[in-house]
Design a protein around this nucleic acid. Structure first.
Lengths: 220, 220
DNA sequence: TTGAATACCAAACAAGCGTTTGTTTTAATA
DNA sequence: TATTAAAACAAACGCTTGTTTGGTATTCAA
């Protein structure tokens, strides 16, 4: 159930408060021991591991050494908490991919670096990123469109990278993108620590697609 | 919560009852208006569309024009109902793939036929098949291993088909299988009726992988 | 036609859910 | 140091959940 009214002022998503537009007495900011971030971490771990509906507010709160009611000081509802986690997940994924690509030359090499960063985040490095895979947008009807927009926004990075590849004319780049992302994301279903590393997985998958991705002048 | 004790005898999964091992008086079988199958259909539709935890017993029962309590005549718990649906999903998938492959010659052509059947089932033809994608085995702790075994058993078809392909020595066939199934299954996240058909999707994905799958003597 | 097993219904149950409420503790400011 | 907002707790609320219970039509074999 979505929150309809707020009993108290709830902080903005960045955890800071702003002055009223008119120059009234200055408000106080958040305290230093603010555990909002800890709470978001706990939510990410739970949502990422078990999906939206399997996780309870009491479990999330417990993960941050709180009680369920206290969560509502930071987030107006469970839906909003999930959306905040999802946003942070997309933000971190995008950030990591961007920085992985930053100093790389060559469209193919850039895509490889992005895929590696993407896979490492999903499989090992980030509970937040896993939320993007574990949570189905339809789980949260009021936030559905927002989640889809966030996911699409992130995938836009890959669309542009594949757009930049030199490919034989007539290549279905959309299908290429779906195949690549599908194969990478699906690895969460069979990845086991101790087996192939995330980097190896992403490398292997790209290698399988490579002869198709490569134009004549790049063959091997 | 898992059922701990059964108050009454519950029919077997095929809806028939068997005699006690010793030759006691013959039991009566199920009536003709038995709505067990209808109930299973309703459960498949709900589980397949929204996952395990988002679906309630009342919704499932309502889908078969029953009340929630009546479900427990046929299945001892929600867990068992999900497992029954999952089993049926795997059974139907396997059946469809087997019959699609039956009259096809050539290892490549067989794989293509199997992928097409697989994709059509997942995207259009079967609520049961979609359960395999929508339900995470970890959603049902007591049935987790059973679900994983079922899924692995089905994927064994693809393992054998890829095993039979003539490929360059040293090819990582496991990675190939994961890539293929991942790309196919992921299509559920972006498939929209009116766009590419399931057959086109499966064809396109295989085409992208083809140059890798094909040995020298099969190139084009 | 009877009798027993089948296949439900109607209603409740305890437990757990997301959320609200009133109060209290804590920390930063003045 | 007194004040005030921030950030929590403790306890409940109303509702929904999966499940149980006792009863009742319906069906089919004898």
């Amino acid at each position: 159930m979505t929150a309809t009214t707020k009993r108290r002022a709830v902080p903005d998503s960045d955890g800071t408060r702003k002055d009223a537009a008119s120059g009234q007495r200055r408000r106080r900011g958040p305290r230093q021991d603010n555990r909002r971030a800890l709470l978001l971490d706990a939510a990410a771990k739970q949502f990422g591991g078990r999906g939206y509906h399997a996780v309870t507010m009491r479990e999330i709160a417990g993960g941050a050494d709180m009680l369920a009611g206290s969560v509502y000081y930071h987030f107006p509802s469970k839906d909003d908490l999930l959306i905040a986690v999802y946003e942070e997940g997309v933000r971190r994924l995008a950030e990591r991919v961007e920085s992985a690509v930053a100093d790389i030359d060559g469209s193919w090499e850039q895509l490889a670096a992005a895929c590696r960063a993407h896979t490492e985040m999903l499989l090992d490095d980030s509970d937040y990123a896993q939320v993007i895979l574990s949570v189905h947008p339809a789980d949260v009807p009021p936030g559905r469109d927002r989640l889809i927009a966030l996911r699409d926004g992130y995938e836009e990075y890959f669309r542009r990278m594949i757009e930049a590849l030199p490919l034989p004319p007539g290549t279905n780049r959309a299908a290429l993108r779906f195949t690549l992302l599908g194969a990478l994301n699906w690895s969460k279903n069979w990845y086991r620590p101790g087996g192939m590393t995330p980097a190896q997985i992403s490398h292997e998958i790209l290698e399988i697609l490579r002869c198709r991705l490569a134009d004549k002048d790049q063959q091997q």
